[in-house]
């Protein structure tokens, strides 16, 4: 939006300063250029929104048989049995939300730390080099992450990470249970690695936009470097950090291939962090191609709509947090 405003305010004065500038009255006359520009931008924006709405309508149409057949039970039941044409999607919702939240819990502190290191601690050139490497992680295709997870991360989780977690947090039932290296934990770790570049890049930009004056003021008041970072950098950047986390969460919720390869694909609510589960995106990818019955296809489309809903709700919650925080700061 900012761009549009800037652009029109830049071009508007031109006709008055040089009235005989372009061809008069033609289709591309200077007067018309602004209008054309605006129409073009407007229609592109409408196109994107229209695309989203059409997509939703089509999806809903496909999912309608499942909606009428199962109703609310689709969200409250975890019984997914293609042989009997019985479908309930609760286990997928739990799987998606759980893996994404664990991924955020792991990725957010790491990303904020790396971003702080790049902007506040390291000299500029070194920071930029590290930034380059972090951004390169974002360029790796998710299938490669999936293969890496299957061949290296899964055995690592089974043989190294599981004993450590079990011996420290094992007294909580959720952190205890049989581990085959494939499951919620491995999927969450893969997701965390995949979303670190997104959150890091955003945090870095946010931290950079903090005025140097503010840092100097904090130091001038006698704060240590850590106090300066906490008071002058992190605190005013809160909404920006949340924005980065929401973007990362969005990617984690929708990630398909890498998760499908390492989560174990068991349509059950996971009993522990080590057990197999399934996510909404992974079940669609797994079962759509060979779905025989119409109801099966329809149920998968309904899972797609639910995924959309979950993403929307996650965004809304994040906005609420930011809004609440800003109000508190002001009030």
């Amino acid at each position: 939006m900012e761009n549009v405003v800037n652009h029109s305010s830049n071009t508007k004065p031109t006709p008055s300063s040089s009235p005989s500038g372009g061809p008069k009255g033609g289709f591309f006359s200077l007067k018309n250029q602004d209008k054309l520009h605006l129409t073009a931008i407007k229609s592109l924006a409408v196109f994107v929104i229209g695309l989203l709405i059409t997509l939703l309508i089509l999806l809903l149409k496909q999912a309608w048989p499942a909606v009428t057949e199962f109703g609310v039970e689709f969200i409250t039941s975890d019984w997914w049995n293609p042989v009997e044409d019985q479908f309930g999607g609760l286990s997928f919702i739990v799987g998606t939300v759980l893996t994404s939240i664990i991924a955020i819990i792991i990725a957010a502190p790491v990303s904020i730390g790396v971003a702080l290191l790049m902007t506040e601690v390291l000299p500029e050139r070194a920071g930029k080099t590290i930034g380059l490497f972090v951004e390169m992680i974002a360029a790796i295709p998710s299938i490669v992450f999936g293969l890496w997870g299957l061949f290296y991360l899964a055995p690592f989780v089974r043989e190294t990470l599981t004993p450590i977690i079990k011996s420290t947090l094992g007294f909580i039932p959720f952190f205890n249970g049989p581990s085959f290296g494939i499951g919620v934990l491995t999927a969450s770790l893969i997701l965390a690695i995949m979303i670190i570049p997104t959150i890091t890049s955003l945090c870095r930009e946010v931290f950079r936009s903090v005025p140097t004056l503010q840092r100097e003021a904090a130091l001038g008041l006698g704060s240590t470097r850590w106090e300066m970072i906490r008071l002058a950098v992190i605190k005013p950047s809160f909404s920006g950090i949340m924005g980065g986390i929401v973007l990362g969460l969005g990617r984690a919720l929708g990630e398909t291939m890498a998760v499908a390869m390492v989560i174990g694909n068991q349509p059950e609510i996971p009993k522990s962090i080590f057990s197999s589960a399934a996510t909404m995106a992974s079940v669609i990818a797994n079962e759509y191609a060979e779905a025989d019955s119409d109801l099966h296809v329809s149920a998968l489309c309904l899972v797609g709509i639910l995924l959309f809903g979950v993403t929307l709700i996650a965004n809304a919650i994040a906005r609420l947090i930011v809004w609440n925080y800003n109000r508190k700061q002001q009030g």
């Binding site: 042989v83 899964a154 694909n265 099966h296």
Partner: peptide, 29 residues
């Protein structure tokens, strides 16, 4: 309990993607 089909409701185990996925899982576990 299970019936015939291309996707079943399995009470146990882990699901891997494709023949190569299952092969690899057997190999490493």
């Amino acid at each position: 309990k299970m019936g015939r089909g291309k996707s079943l409701r399995w009470p146990t185990g882990i699901g891997a993607k494709g023949n190569d996925g299952v092969t690899n899982m057997i190999k490493q576990t």
